[in-house]
Design a protein around this nucleic acid. Structure first.
Length: 276
DNA sequence: ATGACGGTGTGGCACCGA
């Protein structure tokens, strides 16, 4: 057994989930972590986005009781990200993108113990961008460029790297319930997709697409108009793995179960398994 | 073109998300 209780032959499970308020979703989160544990597929590392709370309100005690150490980077009302680990405390923690002035809490990065040595994990809540042509969309593109520039060096320094989070980009037509009708709208623009490809060009791989997947596989559904029931969704939550990590990737799946629970987040968690 | 649903903050709604 490793220090975190993970058996040597067990894969490491890494997940991302946009909670849409950790205050509103804490019971949900604890239920999901426990369900994964009971199923024999415990989550070892989790990146959360949209905490919508300040660090002084972060539920560290409840998460510690559930077996997780956390580092958080919150702010009031909007944004906010955290990394939860079953192993030791995540170390070498960075908040936001070095060199990019930003008053929004969107990125938290840390090093944890992976199946084959240290693992650098970048957890990000990408800018939404609201509407192409808006100030917020310009901010989204500036933020994406800054993230990509910074990651180039980060991958060089830490070859075993995972970039996960709510990307707010549907990378390809098959990642949208209505690719024709929504072409050119937010999440679907050519600029956003080019930015996603620029991330891949750093030597990252969309873990979900390393495997055969069902058609119309999404990670977010609108609360309105029975979006989930009709599977009118988008795949905008992603886990990217570096070249060096790719041989270790055993699976990548979207867990739709908690989206069916009462008062869910509008996002479903995505889970990656890394073997030795 | 707008609103629909949900969360937050604060106030009788507005703003934001995707």
């Amino acid at each position: 057994m490793t220090a975190d209780g993970r058996s040597q032959c067990e894969p490491m499970r890494i997940a991302t989930w946009n909670a849409n308020s950790l205050t509103a979703r804490l019971e949900h989160l604890l239920r999901w972590l426990d369900a994964q544990h009971q199923a024999g597929t415990p989550i070892d590392l989790l990146g959360l986005q949209e905490l919508k709370l300040t660090d002084d309100r972060f539920p560290a005690d409840a998460l510690r009781d559930a077996g997780y150490c956390a580092v958080s980077f919150g702010q009031k009302t909007y944004n906010g990200v955290a990394l939860l680990g079953r192993g030791g405390v995540p170390r070498e923690v960075l908040r936001n993108i070095p060199g990019f002035a930003d008053d929004q809490a969107r990125v938290i990065t840390a090093t944890v113990d992976g199946p084959a040595g240290p693992l650098r994990v970048v957890n990000a809540y990408f800018v939404n961008g609201q509407e192409p042509g808006s100030d917020k969309f310009a901010y989204k593109l500036r933020w994406l460029a800054a993230l990509t520039d910074w990651l180039r060096g980060e991958i060089a320094a830490h070859p075993h790297l995972v970039l996960l989070g709510d990307f707010n980009i549907a990378p390809e037509d098959r990642d949208s319930f209505d690719p024709e009708g929504l072409r050119g709208t937010i999440h679907h623009t050519e600029e956003e997709r080019a930015a996603f490809r620029a991330l891949l060009a750093l030597g990252l791989h969309d873990a979900f697409r390393l495997f055969d997947q069902p058609e119309r596989a999404f990670s977010w559904w609108d609360y309105r108009q029975l979006g989930f029931q009709k599977n009118r969704g988008l795949r905008i939550d992603h886990i990217l793995v570096s070249d060096a990590l790719r041989p270790q990737v055993a699976s990548c799946t979207i867990d739709r179960a908690p989206r069916k629970w009462p008062r869910p987040s509008d996002h479903a968690p995505v889970v990656l398994a890394l073997r030795q």
